[in-house]
Design a protein around this nucleic acid. Structure first.
Lengths: 340, 340
DNA sequence: TGATAAAATGGAAGCGCTTTCATTTTTCGG
DNA sequence: CCGAAAAATGAAAGCGCTTCCATTTTATCA
């Protein structure tokens, strides 16, 4: 029976193999393999002849076969919650840039903040035998963890700080971000403090840091609104409405992301509150739009791209046998604008 | 010699293979293969026994080997210019969702609007023998095209409209977008018309549609500022400054993206112009922030996610041997807000 | 120029799976 | 309870490459 037809194209799928090239060049397959992977081991004439034939025939090596034989796929997988939320997208870009430069490719998995999906993705990804894998966060299902450690490949957990990574981690302490924001707002002095936003583990860490640091000063209010991750503009707007409806004096709010903070800010303005005197709002992420809101949004900046870059480097270093420090910390800072 | 150490993990890389499972279950490898891929062909008892052993051993099939033997990788690749610009990120999400549901995975390539890089990515991707590939745009290097068509796999070009796709396309006519915007602004009547923005092929198409439709009414002014793709907030701000400095009556501006339009809008407000009376600005993309700028941004909305969804469907249909219409059009519409 | 080391090349085996085709087992109507 | 058809299973080959080791060729030095 003929080979399966694929697509609607006339089936002319590059059936040229390394063996074909070898035959055409009058050398053995091994030599062609070397010409491609370790050209320095091939005599210049031979090399050139082989390269000419490769170019002429349009030969594209089969990395499935190569990977199977060599146990190296030059594939690195990354699982992030989402890619449309900018926040992870930039890390992906940094990651990808670094990987491509070293001849690796990126296999992407989107978990949508769902641990079960993360597990399934992990299994599917591991089946492709990537040379390394990057996960978001430090909380994973037990099954995911054992599968991962059993696979014996470099692992990087990003976006979080932990003393005990699965293997290696690149990120920062979300708790400390909360503390920093609390201190910043405390110093300015407000009557009430509140936190609004998402419910993913990292957002909750930031909240805890915020709450605990403020514990001696005032209780931190939380709006009574269900929010999932990622939280939205309208979540923020509603949340602030509710907080303001409760009455009371000046209010300082820490939003779990710039998006939710922007919503809150919009509600404050709509109600004619003065910022940052009556209401102060501080976001997280320093998104593109943060400098351009009205009033401009004070927020916490993280070098998101660097997270990806460092994650890639950790993996590449491990693959070349170098030592890698298990926890690489990424800095953060408050960007002071007009909203707080 | 011992196998190469990978990562810093104790090397215990799942050395359990399908053959091991077969041995443990007392069946032949073929039967295990069937238990995994076509369980309906295996007797219930046998199936259950095999599944138990797979679970117990933590066996993860090797898709490299499987793909090599079956010539199906369950891998779909996508090349987009960038993923941090929201605009493509959402298409990627739609694409991924559809693929994952059918057991496929996404291999991502970022070209950065660079055709040469697109070519290199294409080569690297084809080497992994994906079952289908998605490219952005309809302009590719000749070499890319021939490599692609020679590979004999389903191809989808997204984000653009064309009567002659490489294989299949999902998108819309950027030229028509320009025409629509021109008509919208013409109907409101302005003294001057201008276009500002990026220089990628699609942005230029939109510009051409805009210019040509307005040709009978007025010449379209272009600022004298170099802009690359993607264009930025400050590009827009500068561009509008230059246009306003030229003097003249009321001005209507079409920005190549909401980002650049937002910059223009900010400049207009900073100069105290009334919108949309003195200055009208219309963007493209309906980004998250568009409803929340001050004044809110009138723009063109495209269902970006749907582009990804349809692209995935085209490929999946082709793979299952169904006919697919070569050009799937995605609609667009003007979202009227306060800026125009 | 011959011996020796270094550089180039090749043969054979096998990575872990699926395919094809053959064989065995089960089912079922008469 | 037999024979034919259907269901279940298996043997062998091979997907396209890399690895290890052996062999051949070339360069180098005394």
């Amino acid at each position: 029976m003929a080979r399966r037809e694929r697509g609607g194209q006339p089936e002319q799928s590059s059936p040229v193999t390394l063996a074909d090239i070898a035959k055409l060049a009058g050398v053995s397959p091994v030599t062609v393999s070397r010409a491609i992977n370790t050209p320095s081991l091939v005599k210049p004439n031979t090399l050139e002849a082989i390269q000419r034939i490769i170019a002429r025939t349009g030969y594209v090596p089969n990395l499935l076969a190569g990977g199977l034989a060599s146990r190296r796929t030059r594939l690195v997988a990354a699982i992030v919650p989402s890619v449309s939320s900018t926040i992870f997208a930039e890390a992906i870009e940094g990651l990808n840039a670094e990987l491509v430069a070293e001849g690796y490719q990126l296999l992407l998995g989107l978990s949508g903040y769902d641990h079960q999906r993360e597990l399934e993705l992990t299994r599917a990804i591991l089946a492709r035998r990537p040379d390394g894998i990057i996960l978001t966060g430090i909380t994973h299902l037990k099954e995911t963890r054992s599968m991962l450690t059993g696979a014996g490949l470099p692992i990087v957990e990003i976006w979080d700080s932990t003393p005990s990574p699965l293997d290696t981690a690149v990120g920062f302490s979300h708790y400390d971000v909360g503390v920093l924001v609390a201190e910043y707002l405390m110093a300015k002095g407000y009557d009430r403090y509140a936190q609004i936003g998402a419910n993913d583990p990292r957002a909750l860490q930031r909240r805890d840091g915020f709450i605990n640091r403020l514990a001696s000063v005032a209780p931190v209010e939380l709006p009574d609104i269900e929010m999932n991750s990622p939280s939205t503009f309208s979540d923020g707007r509603q949340a602030l409405a509710q907080l303001l409806d409760r009455g009371g004096g000046s209010l300082a709010v820490f939003g779990s992301s710039d998006v939710v903070a922007h919503g809150a800010l919009t509600e404050a303005i709509a109600r004619g509150r003065r910022m940052p005197e009556d209401v102060a709002i501080i976001g997280f992420g320093d998104f593109d739009f943060a400098p351009h809101t009205y009033p401009s949004l004070t927020t916490v900046r993280i070098d998101r791209r660097m997270i990806g870059t460092q994650a890639a480097r950790s993996i590449l270093r491990k693959l070349s046998g170098e030592e890698v420090e298990p926890m690489i910390k990424i800095g953060f800072e408050i960007v002071v604008r007009h909203s707080a």
